[in-house]
Design a protein around this nucleic acid. Structure first.
Ligand SMILES: NC(=O)c1ccc[n+]([C@@H]2O[C@H](COP(=O)([O-])OP(=O)(O)OC[C@H]3O[C@@H](n4cnc5c(N)ncnc54)[C@H](O)[C@@H]3O)[C@@H](O)[C@H]2O)c1
Ligand SMILES: NC(=O)c1ccc[n+]([C@@H]2O[C@H](COP(=O)([O-])OP(=O)(O)OC[C@H]3O[C@@H](n4cnc5c(N)ncnc54)[C@H](O)[C@@H]3O)[C@@H](O)[C@H]2O)c1
Lengths: 251, 251
DNA sequence: CCGATTTTGTTCTCACGTTCACAAGCTCCT
DNA sequence: AGGAGCTTGTGAACGTGAGAACAAAATCGG
């Protein structure tokens, strides 16, 4: 009743089944926690248990799960297997997605050798490189193939996800080729900003950036403790600011 | 500089020099963009130029930079070299941070071989592993050393950042050892939630999670287009917003 | 020297995300 | 059966972040 009257559906404006991006990013974490619990033979878990296993607080976890539906039982908790399936279904990893990796250097080799993707909803269908010396090399049960075969492979295997592990220079070109071939999701390790048409999703993993973020916080730690600078915290010395004219009401 | 005198009790109540976390995460991106511009011989850049190079919008970029101070010139733009130095200083990468990598398997090898860290403020001082077969192996100009030497190395080289590339099982144990040895920042690649005492920063890189996030959006794309399910998308008839998963900059 | 032009730095507003707090609902015990 | 004890699901308060818009500074042409 009150809803219909107001044209702006005030608070959430949530599209039907539209799950907030922040929640989407945590679902895989919950999925992993549930898998771990399941492997430990635990059949039921409370939001508190799950939250601990996933490293978040329980209110957030419950709210996140509530976007998927009501899969818990009050007074009891969540059935681990059931919830796991529901999350896997929501993410879309109940069946495998075909993935190509482009650029089989240091990082590409590591990814190709990694067994963890297969068990988490992904199937690497091709390792591609432009270097003739690499083509034909065997890695595990796969063989490095020519990047020129990209279009055929994408078409044949219905590949929708591409991983870019080439140097920064060729990355945009590789990206364009991937998109042109029909790939609509890209995971990029090269330290460049890729531009793609709307409708194509990009995620970037950048280790230098991660380290630099750590460095920022690290610097502040040592700065406060070690450097004999100004004590920082200019407060402490009496004035609680909150000043003069009665502006205090603000906000 | 009239800043210091008046505290606006209004909106942000930002601690002196406290930079929002979202901004901190973008500073390295700006730094990289500036380095690229500098390498191209460009001496001055407007916020629009910089924003394009960094893949963000210019208002956000300007606001981010304003937390560091007023380093631009109205009507002109930013001096590339000067701003680059200021950001590097703010992040704390004007001199190198010592880093150890623990677990020299597939991923550890790739990281050890990577030359990009040295130029971005980090110096890898040791490659550590527990496997006797690996110890002594040379990678580039470094040698894999016994994890047991950790404490000595941390002390000798004042290591504050540790990278964990061991399997999930040993990761928490390795983490505890790192923390006990004095490491206060950790970059974790193992698919587990590590727990650390307060004061220690953790960042996690999880490739499976990245792929699963892509899969979620991928599923919705094909779901909307292909699956003859419920019409879905009751919207389209008004709200144009919809965070548009599209061409967005993923991370 | 002044006004037109450019571009920054900042303010304001809205959207998104997090956390609290609690009613609703389930199980189990008496 | 009924109440005690848990735990979920969610409404509401709060905090943070994004983007539009604009006034304040700087340059440049006349
Ligand atoms: N290795 C790491 O630990 C690490 C860390 C952070 C970032 N990165 C980034 O990841 C990317 C890969 O790093 P790497 O160390 O594996 O580099 P690498 O040089 O070892 O491998 C790059 C591979 O890409 C191939 N390649 C080049 N151009 C290509 C093209 N046009 N089409 C197809 N293949 C092409 C090369 O033949 C090579 O095999 C780089 O952008 C690097 O900056 C790597
Ligand atoms: N390789 C990838 O592409 C990839 C992708 C995603 C996630 N990961 C994760 O990254 C981690 C490393 O992956 P990987 O493929 O390099 O594994 P790996 O098995 O090749 O290497 C692990 C290394 O850790 C060492 N190690 C084990 N226990 C140790 C201990 N207690 N102390 C010191 N060293 C120890 C092992 O000797 C081995 O050399 C894993 O947790 C994996 O799940 C890897």
């Amino acid at each position: 009743m009150t809803r219909a009257s107001s044209r702006r559906p005030g608070p959430p404006t949530r599209t039907e089944r539209g799950i907030p991006e922040a929640t989407v990013a945590r679902l895989p974490v919950y999925l992993r926690a549930l898998t771990a619990l399941s492997d430990s033979g635990i059949a039921t878990a409370s939001s508190e248990d799950l939250a601990t296993a996933a490293g978040v607080n329980s209110a957030k976890l419950r709210k996140d799960l509530s976007y998927l539906g009501s899969y818990g039982t009050r007074g009891v908790g969540y059935d681990v297997e059931y919830l796991r399936y529901q999350i896997a279904r929501e993410i879309g990893v109940t069946q495998d997605w075909a993935v190509v990796i482009v650029g089989i250097g240091n990082l590409g080799h590591a990814l190709a050798n990694y067994s963890g993707f297969g068990t988490r909803g992904f199937r690497i269908v091709a390792l591609l490189d432009a270097d003739p010396n690499l083509i034909g090399e065997r890695i595990g049960d796969m063989e490095v193939r020519d990047f020129a075969e990209l279009e055929d492979i994408v078409k044949a295997d219905r590949v929708s996800i591409g991983v870019i592990t080439t140097p920064a220079g060729p990355a945009q070109g590789v990206c364009d080729r991937l998109v042109a071939a029909g790939v609509t999701s890209i995971l990029n390790f090269a330290p460049v900003v890729l531009s793609v048409p709307t409708g194509v999703d990009i995620r970037k993993v950048d280790l230098s950036i991660e380290l630099q973020i750590l460095a920022y916080h690290e610097q502040r730690k040592s700065g406060e403790a070690a450097l004999p600078q100004v004590p920082e915290l200019p407060a402490m010395n009496g004035l609680t600011d909150l000043p003069s004219v009665g502006g205090g009401v603000g906000a």
